[in-house]
């Protein structure tokens, strides 16, 4: 009945996208962090503007990176950067640290990096670029549904959802409530099925392995609960 791909087609496709995303963009694949940016658009646009200002002013960028390198490795800079009158630093610690490890910048004057290492992480794409990514995900779903011939505008999530969770307006409320749990939970544990499940587990990161075991276990528990209550 289902016209979905078998596991042996899905697994290599997801793996190729996960590794390919890093190779092509030098960013770890993730969706929840991208989506979360759009819950605080004004602040994220300010961060973007800060990046642009720093890119336009190399001296300020250099000073900012020296300060962040010192902060990241718990060392005081040998000498205080003298040109700190550049644009104020945007207030986004994680994004800023990633900027500090931009390609070609870190090994230059930092004694911490002794040998040249592999590709460095690129800085966070602008909010507009991330918007393109999210719209592209929607387009991918549309394309697949059209190809399968299953495209159809519906309000609910299918028969199983209607039977085991809720129908009509109550169903929409359940989806919104589930969404809140997803949004809050992924922000708290720092990733979702893509960032933790694929990228993090694929790199055997302890935080990702634990997250994935726990969120999968929770989903199993709640699903059996839903099936039992119905």
């Amino acid at each position: 009945m289902t016209s979905y791909w078998p596991f042996w087609a899905t697994a290599p496709a997801l793996a190729a996208l996960t590794v390919g995303y890093w190779i092509l963009l030098r960013r770890p694949l993730g969706v929840s962090g991208v989506l979360a940016r759009f819950s605080r658009v004004r602040e994220e646009l300010e961060v973007d503007r800060g990046f642009e200002a720093m890119e336009a002013d190399p001296a300020a960028l250099e000073a900012a990176m020296a300060a962040m390198t010192a902060e990241a490795f718990g060392m005081a800079p040998e000498e205080e950067p003298s040109s700190m009158e550049g644009p104020a630093l945007p207030t986004a610690p994680s994004s800023m640290f990633e900027a500090a490890t931009a390609p070609g910048s870190a090994p230059v004057d930092s004694p911490v990096f002794e040998e040249p290492r592999g590709r460095a992480c690129a800085s966070t794409p602008a909010l507009g670029e991330h918007a393109v990514f999210l719209v592209a995900l929607v387009a991918g779903g549309l394309l697949a549904a059209l190809l399968r011939g299953t495209f159809g505008v519906t309000a609910g999530m299918g028969q199983g959802f209607a039977r085991l969770v809720a129908n009509g307006p109550a169903g929409l409320a359940a989806l919104a409530g589930g969404g809140v749990l997803v949004g809050f939970g992924t922000a708290l544990c720092g990733g979702c099925t893509a960032g933790h499940g694929l990228t993090g587990c694929g790199r055997l990161m302890p935080g990702s392995l634990l997250s994935t075991i726990v969120f999968f276990g929770a989903a199993v528990g709640v699903s059996f609960l839903l099936a039992g209550l119905a």
Binding site: L181, G185, V214, A219
Partner: peptide, 15 residues
Amino acid sequence: TVPGALLFGAGWAVA
């Protein structure tokens, strides 16, 4: 990590 993943997993199963 653990509380966040618990909430995410619950939401994933519901929604």
